[in-house]
Write a protein that binds this DNA or RNA. Structure first.
Lengths: 342, 342
DNA sequence: CTGAAAGCGCTTACAG
DNA sequence: CTGAAAGCGCTTACAG
């Protein structure tokens, strides 16, 4: 039979309230009594019932705040789906939520939104942070004020927080490097790498991972160009167009960020008989389409849904039950998708 | 403020018991009253509180039964981890469990274990079924007796059940075919495919997927041999050894099932200068090792942890809250892993 | 068919 | 520092 707080109380000859206080390390219990209670609970194999705990805490309803730098960025669609799914689940347990979306990784906007949510008395925050000093300071303030913070998709350095859920971008680069290597089958290849901006840490890390892997293991592959398109399709189009004219020996283009649509348009128009291989990151509608039609060979994914879902779930569980994840960094899987496994 | 059953009762001028009965379609309510209550609840935006529901149902504790054909099969280690994680979670909500593991996909043993669990009064079953008529009938009996069944990793045909969590094996084959194609870089390749037994549906389907994809899209790749090793390492070793002697033109071996260790041993010993490419399925310790050392180029994975975790979670939620998954088939992702993304 | 009441296990404001 | 009691929201056996 299940051991409840009642059994522990009887075995210890104290009231249920005292057991609760002891087991949850609340103040106001004689330390020796507390120790004895904990020992007895342990011996009896007591495990708290989460449903009861949650119900009892209903009086003190909590709100999860979510801020995503997702506006106008289709990659985030699945992150948002994950966030919404988890928020709905939390809703069944009485946790409210406020969600804000902003355009671009804009530190000032982000700070303003955080203050807005604080004014709404959120109990915890899920956020795609900008990795800046101001934001780090603000997150520090939140943690100090006992408002736990979970970062998703991209992390923030130098501030301890409840958790980060997202991928390791250097590894993500290594995977692309290895993929390009595998696809070369040992033959000579000429590659162009296209990123948004090397000022964005994630993209700089990806680039680093790709280059490192190619250099170490695939001397048959030459990196002919590294281009920054500011994640802008028009710019991407023009740059790729120019690139193809300039480097007729090119065999492969790897898009490590956005601007895929523009880039592919340029490839299409410049098609002078040669078969260019294209590799991308993530799985937006554009990428999906082009994978299916065979224009893109493969794409490297990072579980966006799970980033959103787990981020909210981890925060929710902490608020509901006080449970922390075993590791504060939860790496989402990086995997290679082809037309068959979208 | 959150709407509870109490508010609905007041608005409808009935007791809370009646609201509960109406909203949950329990018998013994005047149909017209029930309809009115449902309407009011809807208007008020009533959402049941899962914690309260769970707590109230504590009196009628439920037990999840789990039967896995996992004994001696390292692939299942992660499935088991997933199962255990979810069972632990369910434990916090008062759901008990009984887990049984059997060796091989043995229908008779499986039936015996099911009967054993029935005797223990399980409320639901998570199982890796053998796709036989007897087992199908038994699962039918369970569902008829209101004991929901969730299949994981492999499904059973011709019986409706709560859910299946696992991958689509034909697609899984297509992914391997596409991968082999990508890695050929358009050059001539000679491939051997090694499965356990074509009598196992999942393996037969994988084989079919691989062949179909190669035939359709990669005429540069020839399948030189298809070998069945009964998932036995010794047999695998001998067969690969013979194969390598017989077919010196071979460039790639794809293991669609077990026997990887034996096969790789044979490749090592026969190494006569040529660089054989090896592709495998799943991520056992053996595969992991050989990926890291570069012996295996890539492996095709299917989220074993998630299969176990979701299988139990879906059943648990159904038993706790009565919620069914949106789709009764939950496909786990198939993805390609390299040395960098294990 | 309907209502009043007890109970699920935990938490906490209140009284001592 | 400790206990008795009310309460979280839902469910159900019981009485009518």
């Amino acid at each position: 039979m299940k051991v409840t707080i009642r059994e522990v109380a009887e075995a210890a000859n104290v009231s249920r309230g005292t057991v609760d206080r002891a087991l949850n390390h609340r103040p106001g219990v004689n330390p020796q009594v507390a120790e004895r209670i904990i020992k007895i609970a342990d011996e009896l194999g007591y495990k708290p019932d989460m449903a009861a705990r949650t119900l009892a805490n209903k009086k003190y309803t909590k709100t999860i705040g979510v801020i995503l730098c997702s506006e106008g960025n289709p990659f985030f669609n699945d992150v948002i789906n994950g966030v919404n799914n988890a928020l709905e689940e939390m809703g069944h347990f009485g946790i409210q939520n406020i969600v804000r979306k902003i355009k671009g990784f804009d530190a000032d906007l982000l700070l303003k939104e955080i203050d807005g949510l604080l004014a709404e008395k959120i109990s915890g925050l899920v956020i795609t942070p900008v990795n800046s000093q101001n934001v780090a300071q603000k997150i520090q303030d939140l943690e100090d004020a006992n408002i736990p913070v979970v970062t998703i998709n991209t992390d923030i350095s130098s501030v301890k927080h409840l958790a980060y859920v997202g991928c390791d971008y250097i590894t993500s680069g290594c995977v692309a490097g290895e993929l390009l290597g595998m696809m070369s089958n040992g033959f000579e290849e000429h590659v162009a790498l296209i990123i948004g901006s090397s000022m964005v840490m994630a993209q700089e890390q990806r680039l680093r991972g790709i280059k490192k892997t190619l250099k170490r293991d695939y001397s048959n592959i030459t990196v002919e160009a590294v281009i920054e398109n500011d994640d802008d399709d028009q710019k991407s189009y023009e740059q790729v167009k120019a690139l193809l004219k300039e480097k007729p020996e090119l065999t492969t283009i790897c898009f490590a960020s956005a601007g895929v649509e523009g880039g592919i348009k340029a490839v299409r128009e410049s098609d002078c008989g040669r078969k260019l291989r294209i590799v991308t990151y993530d799985l937006t509608d554009i990428v999906r389409e082009n994978l299916k039609s065979g224009v893109v060979s493969a794409t490297i994914c990072q579980e966006p849904f799970r980033q959103g879902f787990l981020g909210v779930e981890i925060l929710g569980r902490y608020l509901l039950y006080g449970t922390k994840p075993k590791e504060s960094t939860i790496k989402t899987h990086i995997f290679i998708a082809t037309k068959y496994n979208l």
